[in-house]
Simulated scan of single mutants.
Amino acid sequence: MPPPRTPKTSAPPDPAPSPQGYDGTSPFPSDGPAPIRDGGERLYVAVTGVIVVLPFVAIALAGWLLWGRLIHPTDIVLALVLYTITGLGVTVGFHRGLTHGGYRAARPVRIALAVAGSMSFQGDVIGWVATHRRHHAFTDRPGDPHSPYRYGTHLRGQLRGLLHAHVGWLFRSDSTPADRYAPDLLADRDIRAVSRAFPVLCVLTLALPFGVGWAIGGTWLYGVTALLWAGLVRIALLHHVTWSVNSLCHLIGERPFRTRRHDRATNLWPLALLSFGESWHNLHHADPTSARHGVDRGQVDPSAAFIRLLERLGWVHDVRWPTADRVAARRV
């Protein structure tokens, strides 16, 4: 039985228009007094803090361990391989496939991409998709979970908003209900199983480089350096590339395509390779279901190239490739 199709819309319809009086430059209305955190919320904040801070500690530790030494080639190769696998799991699996329905995948491919994305340490697949659909429903206006315009467009507000959009939003008590934003995934038995397995996959994404490094190098020290570079440092880099799309790609860059009111998504070419094409963010917000984000000459989009490969292998179908007329209709 084929898996349920992701809805054609990139996000649920807005439940209500923007709060009356919001002009696109003022700070977002206050959420009211901060709720008293229960034990579960405090645990969530603590775990989030560990996930954000630990990779930086790993970088410092790696520098101390490798002072005056060479980095093992195994570490570099493992880091590149795992960065690519988990990065494409996020961009092709979580984002272009499950969130926006840019293609339909065979069941094994759908599951494999969801597993790979979960190993990026960016949250369980259902929560990730729900949050991103909410971002599209309320882009850069009240309701957006990570807009850099949350505190207004004056300099101090922009600096505070940049920090919020990059990482601060992770620490807010502002959960996104999956039953409203991702009911299709809640109804998918396979995706529910991957979502429940998220803690195990987080352990696996660290144990794998440690085990491979030890097996190839023959000593535990090789396992530790592989864990640092191909595990924690790799996770830190992918985290901040992903978060930069949330923050920088709504503040700086070019906007050759029209987006909805208040939506300030931009194209930021320096991030294109590291983000696997996700930083062609302006076109994505102009046409969210498109399987390709980099549509202009010279705009490299590795995620789209990977989807094309899967299509030629017969593993994905009904791919929503952009057409010349569709692109032209959205151009400024």
Rank of each mutant, 00 (worst) to 15 (best):
T289V: 11
G127H: 04
V52W: 15
P4M: 06
L251D: 03
L208M: 08
R292K: 12
G24A: 12
R5K: 13
A193D: 00
G231N: 01
G40F: 10
T153L: 09
H281L: 08
R156W: 09
G40R: 13
S275F: 07
L65K: 07
G127L: 04
E254P: 02
E278F: 02
L66H: 05
L227W: 13
Y149G: 04
G231D: 04
L98Y: 07
I76H: 05
R261P: 00
H146E: 02
V81C: 04
T242I: 12
P2S: 08
P12F: 03
L237K: 05
I85A: 13
L283C: 06
I76E: 00
P33S: 00
P12L: 11
L155E: 00
G168T: 01
P302T: 14
A165V: 09
A304G: 03
R264M: 12
G87A: 01
V53K: 14
G218C: 03
G49M: 12
G89E: 02
I51V: 14
V53R: 11
R258S: 07
P15D: 11
R292T: 06
Q122N: 15
H166P: 10
R107D: 14
W169H: 04
L237Y: 12
R96I: 05
V194Q: 00
S244H: 07
A207D: 04
L237G: 01
A182K: 14
P7C: 02
T176F: 07
A329E: 13
A62H: 12
G32D: 08
V90T: 02
N246Q: 10
T86H: 03
W280I: 05
S275E: 08
L162H: 07
R312T: 08
T74I: 08
Q20W: 01
P19L: 12
P2W: 07
A130N: 05
W315N: 09
H100L: 09
G89R: 02
V194I: 03
F276T: 04
G143H: 07
G63R: 10
S195R: 13
S290F: 07
S118A: 14
P12S: 02
G101Y: 11
S290L: 03
A236F: 05
A62M: 15
L248C: 11
I76C: 00
